[in-house]
Design a protein around this nucleic acid. Structure first.
Lengths: 206, 206
DNA sequence: CAAATAATATTGACGTTGTAAAGTTTCCTA
DNA sequence: TAGGAAACTTTACAACGTCAATATTATTTG
């Protein structure tokens, strides 16, 4: 028996929105973006073909809800991984591990979260959850000041640097753009220079 | 007169494959991935709806050809930007500028190039052009040894580090994930620590 | 040069999809 | 308990990817 299907044959599902998102995520990771359709989601949870429209409006609405959920989860995962009592570098390392772990565990959703036109960029839920994710990255970007000595935009640059790096690594990893012979035993922490607490200033020869 | 359309009404187009790719790129950047269809491409160049199948097999084939072209162009753009006589840091900076310039100029194609399931990962042309792009990054990753002192995998790590960073920056930029108030005047070079030739060793407190 | 064959393009059709409109059932509140 | 809102279904339609069959042109070969 499929326990994704509503347990009793009621006219109202009761929790259709969440059930559809859950089904959509399974379809997306299993069959890729072309394997995800509103009709398949509806069928998976046992409702009519057009029922999803009541909760998401259109397909972009569903994809946006999925992406918003992803941002919430990646923020949660990072937060839970951060030890209470640890150095800045240790806290940052655990957060980065959580970030990459989410991307590796939900590669298709992760790609969706950073797509340009498939999700509704102005959705309030999405914006709020993106912000929550960014807040965690802000928190663990402390201690990178050595990269930008005496820079008035030191915080913004540290945050942009950290997110750029970890996002790039996560997506190149999940998109299989790293050559396997180079990847032997190398993970995100091995190539992140900010693992150190004591960063020396860089002499800029530009 | 639309000079994308074949000039004379011949049965054989003559250069349909390239014309379709060109039309597809225009549609992709203008209307996003949902605005790109084989039928619209065919109509744009004045052939029947199913003519693209002869050159690409299916839609994934067209998307793959587009992505392959993108990798060739980004490698070309980087190469052309690199000065002949310059320091390693200068050469790297110009290459990174070219990389980000391509992504900013072709955001939808850039996203497609790093997608997981929309393009055919085993396509020989794609693999070759990805390799060519990577080779340029390998070339300009020299001089980053200070990040990984006495590491036997120093080359691989430098390359993974550089690509992770610049790809992450490029996509976060094109996906509008950076807050505008933080972006004021900050570009990829401002937040890349590797701009210096003289990198000091990092003390690792792990 | 002519015939055969490959390459290229068209027509027609089919199943799937997103979505809109209208109707039905259930829930909730006043 | 009546009435309206919310949730769901049914029906329908245009656009899409793709397949099969056919037609036209280009190229090779005898």
């Amino acid at each position: 028996m499929n326990y994704e299907v509503k347990d009793t044959a009621r006219y109202h599902h009761g929790n259709l929105r969440d059930a559809l998102i859950k089904a959509a995520r399974v379809l997306l990771e299993a069959d890729g973006h072309s394997g995800l359709s509103l009709r398949k989601c509806a069928e998976a949870v046992g409702v009519s073909q057009t029922a999803p429209q009541n909760h998401f409006g259109n397909k972009a609405g569903l994809l946006t809800a999925m992406a918003a959920e992803g941002y919430a989860e990646i923020a949660d995962l990072m937060t839970k991984k951060i030890p209470d009592r640890a150095t800045l570098a240790q806290r940052r390392e655990r957060a980065l591990q959580g970030y990459v772990e989410f991307a590796a565990g939900n590669p298709a959703l992760y790609e969706l979260m950073f797509s340009r036109n498939r999700i509704l960029a102005d959705d309030p839920d999405l914006l709020r959850n993106v912000g929550a994710c960014f807040e965690v990255l802000v928190e663990v970007s402390k201690g990178l000041e050595g990269f930008f000595p005496d820079d008035p935009k030191i915080d913004a640059k540290s945050q942009m640097y950290l997110w750029s790096f970890v996002h790039g690594y996560a997506q190149l990893l999940t998109a299989n753009r790293f050559k396997k012979e180079d990847m032997q035993g190398v993970d995100v922490l091995d190539i992140f220079p900010g693992s150190s607490n004591e960063l020396c200033c860089l002499t800029d020869d530009r």
